[in-house]
């Protein structure tokens, strides 16, 4: 199973090593999608966890037991493709390769698989065609 979660840390829980514990004890593969976290402050991690369902459940239970708030992330980039004028402004701020202009047809290609929901394209699109769907708390 592969699923995305948002981990929220309080200033105290930030100090505890969580990711390595998940990997070691529960055999979960962790892929960090977005991190806004620093030592001694509140923070947020968007991670993709891969492993069997049972281990992921146990891993999440452990994270909660040490005070980390975990919620499944359904945060996704919404793109109103129909209105796109294929300018390409958004491609210059997408550093993950999710937005690319086709060199031949000059049409925008959006690949949700590559998107890490960093949100930079939201401000870069002059037609305001991107938004982020609300995260489940």
């Amino acid at each position: 199973m592969k699923k995305r979660f948002v981990f929220r840390f309080s200033p105290d829980t930030v100090k505890k090593p969580l990711m390595s514990y998940l990997v070691r004890e529960f055999n979960i593969d962790v892929n960090i999608w977005n991190a806004d976290i620093s030592y001694g402050r509140e923070g947020k991690l968007v991670v993709e966890l891969e492993g069997d369902e049972n281990s992921i459940e146990k891993g999440l239970a452990y994270a909660r037991s040490i005070g980390v708030n975990c919620s499944p992330s359904i945060k996704e980039l919404q793109f109103n493709r129909e209105k796109c004028i294929n300018c390409g402004s958004c491609t210059s701020v997408c550093f993950y390769g999710a937005l690319q202009i086709n060199q031949e047809s000059w049409e925008l290609n959006y690949d949700p698989e590559q998107c890490v929901v960093c949100g930079l394209c939201i401000k870069a699109c002059p037609l305001q065609l991107f938004s982020i769907s609300r995260e489940e708390e």
Binding site: I85, N86, C87, G88, S89, C90, T91, S92, V93, F95, I101, Q103, S105, W106, E107, A124, P126
Partner: peptide, 24 residues
Amino acid sequence: RSGTIRVQGKEIKTGSLSSLEKAR
């Protein structure tokens, strides 16, 4: 148009504001 330019030795990602697809 290639997607990157080199300025002062640095590779920079480019993006167009005008639409070539519409211009065509």
